[in-house]
Structures are given as C-alpha cells and as structure tokens.
Amino acid sequence: MADLYQIQDLRLSLADMTAKPLLGAAPKIEILKGLSFTIPKGSAVGIVGGSGSGKSTLGRALVRLLEPSGGTIRFDGADITHLSDAALRPLRRRFQMIFQDPMSSLNPRHRVGTIIAEPLRLHGFTDIPTRVTRALDQVGLPQAFAMRFPHELSGGQRQRVGIARAIALEPDFILADEIVSGLDVSSQAQVLNLLERLVRDLGLTLAFISHDLSVIRRLCQQTIVLHQGRIVENRPTPDLFADPLADYTQELLSAIPLPDPAQPWG
C-alpha cells in the first residue's frame, strides 16, 4: 500500500510566551523533536500522548496549520513542508480537520447547511446543495437539520456536523483531534462507529488524536505514542495493546480505569 504521508525527522519549534521578556522576542521551545513515520493510504492511525506531548502540534503540522522548523512532510509524494499559503490552498480540500470543541469550531450564527456549504463554496464546487444533502445523509443527520443552528444540537450531533463539513469536500485525509473527549459514552460510541464506517466506505485516511488509548483500540490499525515531543512507540495497534514495549505506553495503559472493580489499580 502506498503511503499518503511520509514524515522525515519532523521538528517544530514554537515561541514560549510564558517565558517572553517584556521587550524582545519570546524564546523558542522545540515541541516536536525529530519524528519519522509514514501513514499508509486508507489506514487509520492513532496518535496518543499526555497533555504537552506534542500530539496536537503534530496534527497541525500534518495539515500545515503550522510550518515545521525542520525535516520534511511529504503528502501524496509532494513535499509540503514549507509551501506558502497560496500554494497550499488547492491542497487544503484534500486534508480536512475535525476539531475537539464543536461549539468553537462551528459558527454559532450560521445554520448547519451554511456551515457545511461554506468550504464547498470556497473551493469552487458548483453542486453545493446536492453535496450538503449527501454529507448530512452520510453522517446520519436528518435533512431538516440543515436549517438548525449549532446550539440547537446535542454534542454528538454537533460533532456529526463537523464530520459532514469535512467529508463533503471528498478529502483524502482527515485529522480528528480529540473529537470525542467532550462527549458522553453513548455519543462517543456513535461518533466512533460513524467514523469507522466512513473511513472504510469512502476510503479515507485518518489520523485520530486522543489521550485515551481505549478509543484508539477499536478504530486505528496503527498507533503512535508520543511523549515529550518524541515517538516512543509506533506499532500495529493489536501488538501495542498485547505487549506495550515503551515504559510510557505501559504507564498510559495502566492508568486507564477499566469499568471493572476487580482491575488492580493501586
């Protein structure tokens, strides 16, 4: 299987605003410290780590919301590491993002139909109403929802709108950054099942960022564990769960409270 992403020695530094002097530039801190991995076409990759491990920064680099300070990112064979905003624009349709908090990523003043149509319009699609209808259908929302506002929806429904907006553009790649961490277990299960089905039916490639290994187990074939800006483990998901190699992976796994009072958890 060909690789959709090839990442070589990816480095990324950001300004450390907490250490910024009153006058002058903030010092840089390196968030990503040389990551190399590939994402095969059509696969679902889980990216896990604790807060501050760099997982969201990595995600943002993959869709080039951030520019790396070193290394290369190849997307479908093309080097996109340092492409300008203008050069990226035609590519943006091909990699889409679903965000953690739908209340801040869906415009509260727009109806769901407009929210899904807006990126289609920007990318010059002409059959917009058809595509909006189809996208709502694919995420299992009734057509009448096109006329609703985000605040009229439940958390799970809002995340479905986020997914509909992303898939309407027929992207090759979707980055989902902690998209179920704010949801109840039942809505969480619904959204994950939906995503699993869409990835399969539409042949999408998915990077799924989460701090919770238990949601990755079901969805992702491959899991990358990040700790302090470095990859500590990158293996097929079943192997990683059966026999976690890195100490940090073991720590993450053993910290998950299983719904079972008999689990040793001392």
């Binding site: 969480q188 299960a189 619904q190 919770d212 079901r218 769960f241 299983l258 719904p259």
Partner: peptide
C-alpha cells in the same frame, strides 16, 4: 459491575470503552 439491574444502566456500561476487550465497549 457484576450485573447491572436496569437495562439503561446496562447499556451505559456496554458503551464504556474497555481496551482489554476491543469487541466489548463502545456500543451506543
């Protein structure tokens, strides 16, 4: 956790992810 009595609480338990058993959990 041995046996929830109400069907709704049983369903809630079945929706809770369980990484030790990928077939169980995450059922809406």
């Amino acid at each position: 956790f041995a046996a929830p009595r109400h069907p709704y609480s049983a369903a809630l338990l079945a929706a809770t992810p369980k990484y030790t058993d990928p077939a169980a959990g995450l059922n809406p």
